[in-house]
């Protein structure tokens, strides 16, 4: 090999090395591929149980004991063909009806009912003011750029969520969101926690059954 060809070879090697380094760097910044998690969201689960716990902030003592004061709502979603049945048990603080001094009046009350949703529309629902979703366009979306400190294993995923609205697919304003999920070939469970704008701590637990 003559001297000219050797110089060209060196330049080619350097260029190729630089390209590989750039490719490696780019790949490292983009984070791991999470497409398989999104694929698991598209599976046909027979049941999903959604538990939402809203824990009121400690600096406003709502309880005269050291126990936390919270409101917990549970939504159990099952499917009959293309109809989603949402059985809900929503907990609220009870308001006082000034006319009645009911001995059974407690700080909390439960609203229970079942709604049926088809094609994003509520087709049946009890006559109460419990909100149920209609025409949801978004939903959970796993993309690496939405997270920091990703820890992805064969059967688990944990991360700090730096873009909660994009990840949750909802108009949510919060801080300190974290996600952890367990799965095999489908999701088993998922936990999302965050601190709401009001200062409350919220814990959402998803339980999936295929």
């Amino acid at each position: 090999m003559n001297k000219v060809n050797l110089i060209h070879m060196k330049k080619l090697i350097l260029a190729l090395s630089a390209f590989c380094a750039a490719l490696f760097t780019f790949t490292a910044c983009a984070g791991p591929n999470l497409d398989h998690l999104n694929d698991m969201l598209d599976l046909d689960y027979s049941k999903i149980v959604l538990t939402v716990k809203d824990i009121f902030f400690e600096d406003l003592p709502l309880s005269d004991s050291n126990e936390e004061v919270s409101l917990t709502s549970v939504y159990e979603i099952t499917y009959s063909g293309d109809v989603a049945n949402v059985h809900y048990l929503v907990e609220r603080f009870a308001q006082i009806d000034g006319i009645l001094a009911d001995e059974s009046l407690a700080t909390h009350e439960m609203l229970e009912g079942e709604a049926m949703i088809k094609d994003g529309l509520v087709i049946t629902k009890p006559d109460d003011d419990v909100w149920v979703p209609i025409q949801i366009a978004g939903g959970l979306n796993f993309k690496s750029q939405y997270f920091d400190n990703i820890d992805l294993g064969d059967m688990y995923f944990t991360a700090d969520v730096k873009n909660p609205r994009a990840f949750m697919g909802s108009e949510l304003y919060c801080t300190d969101m974290k996600v952890s999920a367990g799965f095999i070939d489908s999701f088993i469970n998922m936990s999302i926690t965050y601190r709401a704008q009001s200062g409350n701590n919220v814990e959402i637990l998803y339980e999936f059954t295929l």
């Binding site: 959604l50 939504y75 909100w131 979703p133 949801i136 949510l172 409350n200």
Partner: peptide, 24 residues
């Protein structure tokens, strides 16, 4: 208590909306 209930409902709504296509 109504203001507390509204905060809780916001959290419930966000959680349900996160299910997205699982409810459509």
């Amino acid at each position: 208590v109504a203001s507390c209930n509204r905060e809780s409902e916001s959290a419930n709504k966000a959680a349900l909306e996160s299910l997205g296509g699982l409810l459509n």
